[in-house]
Nucleic acid binder design. Structure first.
Lengths: 232, 232
DNA sequence: TTATAACCATGTTCTACAGCACAAATGTAC
DNA sequence: GTACATTTGTGCTGTAGAACATGGTTATAA
């Protein structure tokens, strides 16, 4: 399925925030237990129903957390960017995964056994605080999303997705969004059909809010996009 | 706004799980800082934008967490039942409240300053674990809800709400759901308009899935209700 | 009592959007 | 190169469900 590589990783930069919160001893423990995996584009990282065993931290690439709903219709729940942690919710809730995670593009992930993480947590309040904070932020985002996806109209939903992509992945020098998704993924993120995503993108182009070049989305009028997202 | 009462509360039963995890010292600290408030039907407990200061535990009654979306349309995010904790997410995320909380019926709430809670958490890993668990479970529920509310049809959404009310509040001896909400609240919980909630309830009655008597909902065929919820 | 409001209930439009169907463009394999 | 698959783009049609309207029924108040 996936390839394990022995590799020298600079943990202090790649694990960032969490690394800073650790004692030397804990760092040694972590280094000993961490594994690095590489995933190819569209490869599955974990699946609904799997038992959660490892904390994951995305080092490089992009990952989507998604979920198949009624009639197999797919919905993207959230997107992970480098140095974000994921895959821990299910373990903490003592559940199996409710979602799927797949690499959006070639990605590198650092895995740490949850058992090790738990041992560290027992002794290090700051790590607990870190997870509590993450979970709380994510729960807030989820609540917002629920309201937005159900109440906003199609234009508002798509605009909102674009805005959240901008906020997550940023803009290039030429104002194009730093992630390339298919129209289908964009639709799954915005809770609409692919045709509607295409159609609505076209109207945005006509209104000079964005410009398209294949999967590249150039943001022309970010203010207007944010306005559509808020009011639409 | 609300009335504070000096009152003898049996913390060990009313705070349940958390109380058991505390040391004697912590219990004394908690008892000294806890306040009891009473809220009337429909009274607001906190509002969007307020600064979170206290951990709240519902001792008696029913509370709804809701959120006003596009065009003031209201959406119920989750319902709280006695001995459930709430109001802590925003504090942990270092945000102000994103939601409103109101008493559904006359309710009693125990408030503990978050500062005190934090002090206890620093020393007591079990309390950290408790919140991590709660947040993780809630995040899972939120993700499920997002998919359900956006993908299911109107019948499925209403059925799902009814099922979740059954699971939260249980059934009386006569198979009626142990909570009485207005059609409007039911609509806000199921992401539909009041008229559609009324209409769909009627079809459920016609199909002999439920029986209605004012706000009282008697569950006739729970299996069928769960089936509609799953497939609808 | 009447007044007034808050709830229910149901029927009738109307429109946003999903669901095709089909074509063109682009990529990928051989 | 050709062949095939995947992605993208558009038009058409049906329908779920929102918006509106009307009327009845039950609480709360004057």
């Amino acid at each position: 399925m996936y390839k394990k590589e022995e590799e020298i990783i600079d943990f202090s930069t790649s694990l960032n925030e969490v690394w800073r919160l650790l004692t030397n001893q804990e760092r040694i423990l972590l280094r000993k237990n961490a594994k690095i995996y590489h995933y190819k584009r569209n490869q599955r990282i974990y699946g609904e129903g799997d038992e959660p065993k490892d904390l994951m931290c995305l080092l490089k690439g992009k990952v989507k957390i998604h979920k198949s709903g009624v009639g197999g219709r797919n919905q993207i729940i959230r997107m992970i960017r480098p140095i974000q942690y994921f895959a821990y919710r299910a373990y903490f809730a003592k559940e199996n995964y409710l979602t799927d995670a797949s690499a959006f593009e070639a990605s590198t992930v650092c895995l740490v056994p949850m058992k090790v993480v738990r041992e560290i947590m027992k002794r290090n309040y700051n790590i607990c605080k870190f997870f509590i904070r993450q979970l709380s932020v994510d729960l807030g985002i989820a609540d917002e999303r629920t309201v937005n996806l159900t109440q906003k109209h199609i234009r508002g939903r798509l605009a909102e997705s674009l805005v959240s992509l901008i906020d997550s992945y940023g803009l290039e020098d030429d104002a194009s969004i730093n992630i390339f998704l298919s129209r289908e993924d964009l639709a799954n993120l915005s809770n609409m059909t692919t045709s509607n995503a295409i159609r609505t993108l076209s109207t945005f182009v006509a209104e000079k809010v964005i410009a398209l070049d294949g999967r590249k989305i150039k943001v022309i009028d970010e203010d207007k996009l944010r306005k559509i997202s808020k009011l639409g």
